[in-house]
Design a protein around this nucleic acid. Structure first.
Lengths: 195, 195
DNA sequence: GTCTATACTTCGATAGAC
DNA sequence: GTCTATCGAAGTATAGAC
């Protein structure tokens, strides 16, 4: 294995078209629909081109992870720098496209080592950046049963956002309306950081 | 379509073996690995038998959903009837196998209508049963920013449990330790219901 | 540097033998 | 009622032409 097969250039227009098509398929039909044939068809290209630009399908998925993560790191940074960072962060976390993208990749990663490692690294980076921002805003927060570390606060927020969006997509709604209202009140209260 | 092809009996031993194999594959390698060939191989049977007992792969998945859900409804009922229902419910929700099973099916369901509908129906049932039990135990709970309905409480609990387990599986751990400790304290406090 | 012709494997599904 | 022989489509990947 590991023959020295040639690959297309990273900045190729065709390569970008394939990545775009793959991302669209991932969102619309799930990771199982991201096959060389379907990706190519969506981009109006031949299936073999996928393997010219990406040695294996795993490589394509890795490129997808990196590209999506970099874009979202940007978006998150902007949210954290906004006048209402907590609200902006929540809006960012509950964006359906972003949440779907993450959930699909997580499901895929569950059984593909290389992708899992890459996704985990990015996830920790996201959380650390959120935690840092929350720490600056609030320090440790009292929960009524002890203090909450910023990292945990970031986890709670992301977890609830992801599951809300995911269940919405499935058509599960029990408890959502009141949960969203409660979170809205928490964000309202957090609007003006204590320090 | 819809030809009147014959199907095997529901109580067939072979059928059960196939379902067991499918469940194991789903847990170990993800839904994409649940193919007629792999399921059969795992059960030591011929691939064509899958289609004798399940007209389509969707039918196999549906059977898997129903079987898994019925077992878990039982487990949840036992948890709710235990001396420490809140703790038992949390332990049940954070069981890795159960959470993985759910997440895989959710990812699959995202893009398969029939499975999505079935899964959503069961999910609502789980939540309603949890909510009913929590309502009997606590009524509405004060959160510091208004009351929390039992249904929302159930959602929060399940969401956090699922994401904890899922991130653990991916190797993401930021904020988990303190989050688990905080939840443990909450459960401790909830140990003795107020009414 | 870019794309095509082609090979080989695995997929879901059907028709028909026992 | 149970299982097998077989099919056409779709999957990843390689070697080689432009």
């Amino acid at each position: 294995m590991a023959t020295t097969r040639r690959l297309g250039a990273e900045d190729s227009v065709t390569r970008h078209a394939l990545l775009d098509a793959a991302r669209a398929l991932l969102l619309e039909e799930g990771y199982a629909a991201v096959t060389s044939r379907k990706v190519a068809a969506r981009a109006g290209l031949k299936p073999q081109l996928v393997h010219y630009y990406f040695a294996t399908m795993d490589d394509l998925f890795l490129a997808l992870v990196r590209h999506g993560a970099e874009i979202n790191l940007d978006r998150q940074a902007r949210a954290l720098a906004s006048p209402e960072p907590v609200r902006a962060l929540w809006d960012f976390a509950t964006d359906p496209a972003g949440a779907t993208f993450t959930m699909e990749l997580a499901a895929l990663a569950n059984h593909r080592k290389a992708i899992r490692a890459e996704l985990a690294t990015y996830a920790e980076r996201f959380r650390a950046l959120q935690a840092e921002a929350l720490r600056e805003m609030f320090g440790r927060v009292d929960s009524g049963v002890g203090e909450v570390a910023p990292e945990s606060l970031a986890f709670f927020m992301t977890a609830l956002a992801q599951m809300l969006v995911m269940e919405d997509a499935l058509g599960v709604e029990g408890g959502h309306k009141e949960a969203r209202e409660l979170i809205a009140r928490l964000i309202e209260r957090a609007g003006k950081p204590q320090r």
